[in-house]
C-alpha cells in the first residue's frame, strides 16, 4: 500500500486502488478533495491561503498554496489520469479551515480559505457534497483511493468519515 503524502501547499492525485492520499494537521488550511468516479482517481490540494495576489512568485512555485491557483492546478494534474479537464462528474469534499477560539476577523484565515475555495469551485460549476469545515481543532485527512473513502482524525477524538 502506497501513501501519497501532501504537505502544505502541495497537490496530487492517484488512481492506484491500494494507495492512500493523506495530509496531516490542517489548521486553518483547507483540503480540497476531488473524487472522480469514472476514472477512480482521487485528487487533493492542501490550501494554506485564499489569494495568490499576495505573492505571485510563491504561487508560481507552489500553486497548491493558494485557493485561486490550487484548483486549476489540481484539475490539470487530474487530466493526466484521464479525468475531465473541467472536473465534470467529480465529487467534491472539503475539510479543515479551523479557527482559534474567540478569533477576530483578521485571524479568520480558515473561514476565508473555505469561502475562496467555494467561490472558485462555483466558477468551475462545481460544489461540495460534503464538508467538515471550521470549528477549533486540527484535522488529518486520509483518503483510500480504492474505496474513495475520506477519513478524518484529530488527536484525542475518535476518527470519523466524511
Amino acid at each position: 500500500m502506497g501513501q501519497v503524502i501532501l504537505g502544505v501547499g502541495d497537490y496530487g492525485a492517484s488512481n492506484n486502488p491500494t494507495d492512500d492520499v493523506k495530509t496531516f494537521a490542517l489548521g486553518s488550511c483547507v483540503s480540497v478533495i476531488l473524487l472522480d468516479p469514472k476514472t477512480k482517481t482521487v485528487g487533493m490540494a492542501h490550501v494554506a491561503l485564499p489569494d495568490s495576489s499576495i505573492n505571485k512568485a510563491k504561487a508560481a512555485e507552489k500553486p497548491g498554496y493558494f485557493a485561486d491557483t490550487a484548483i486549476p492546478a489540481l484539475l490539470a494534474e487530474m487530466t493526466k489520469y484521464g479525468c475531465h479537464k473541467k472536473g465534470k462528474g467529480m465529487v467534491v469534499k472539503l475539510c479543515g479551515g479551523a479557527n482559534v477560539m474567540d478569533t477576530n476577523d483578521t485571524f479568520q484565515i480558515g473561514k476565508r480559505n473555505a469561502l475562496a475555495i467555494k467561490k472558485i469551485l462555483w466558477a468551475h460549476g462545481m460544489g461540495a457534497i460534503a464538508e467538515d469545515l471550521g470549528e477549533n481543532f486540527s484535522r488529518t485527512v486520509t483518503i483510500s483511493v480504492g474505496a474513495g473513502q475520506v477519513t478524518l482524525s484529530s488527536p484525542g477524538r475518535p476518527n470519523w468519515q466524511l
Partner: peptide, 13 residues
C-alpha cells in the same frame, strides 16, 4: 497552530 503545527490534542483550542 493555524499553520498546522500544534502539539497534538490542544491545537487551536
Amino acid at each position: 497552530m493555524m499553520g498546522g503545527f500544534g502539539t497534538g490534542s490542544d491545537s487551536m483550542r
